[in-house]
């Protein structure tokens, strides 16, 4: 038995390092949404708060059915589409998120500071799969580097709430 202790410790150490060292794992989204196919539409058409509110919001079925009358293609399963058609909420998983103690407003960054969505979310228009992980590392250093570069407020309380 005693011989097994070191390998078990090694396994645990590897597991711990794996979790700590790698970025967050991508999550599976309920629908294989293709951003590239929708690139002709402005972001704020579906993410309605992106330019006018604090939260951009992830579109729900009512947004889909404004344009789609039937299931778009085989990328959406019949069962998933029946939920959408019935107006049931889609179980999107929000992957790009700021911590609870941060006050972030999309409007302040997009329509007021004239930042492109891509500056934080990457080139969504080129994506053929939904976001499984944030395009940018959401960390204070990321925020601060841009704030410093752009001359935005670096007061802690400007973002910390």
């Amino acid at each position: 038995m005693r011989r097994l202790v070191p390998p078990v410790l090694v396994a645990l150490a590897v597991a711990g390092l794996w979790i700590l060292a790698l970025p967050a794992a991508p999550v599976d989204q309920p629908i294989a949404f293709n951003h590239a196919r929708h690139a002709a539409v402005a972001c704020a058409v579906c993410h309605r708060g992106a330019e006018t509110a604090a939260r951009a919001g992830i579109p729900q079925s009512n947004v889909c059915t404004r344009c789609h009358a039937t299931a778009p293609d085989r990328s959406v399963s019949a069962r998933a589409w029946s939920d959408v058609a019935a107006g049931r909420p889609i179980a999107w998983r929000q992957v790009t998120q700021v911590p609870e103690h941060v006050m972030f407003s999309h409007r302040r960054h997009t329509s007021l500071a004239q930042l492109a969505c891509a500056s934080c979310h990457g080139d969504a228009a080129a994506r053929v799969t939904p976001f499984g992980a944030p395009a940018t590392r959401i960390a204070m250093t990321t925020c601060l580097s841009c704030h410093t570069r752009e001359g935005a407020s670096e007061d802690c309380a400007a973002c910390h709430r």
């Binding site: 911590p99 103690h101 007061d155 802690c156 309380a157 910390h160």
Partner: peptide
């Protein structure tokens, strides 16, 4: 002039 508290 506001005394702020940064919780984290």
């Amino acid at each position: 002039g506001i005394v702020a508290q940064i919780y984290p």
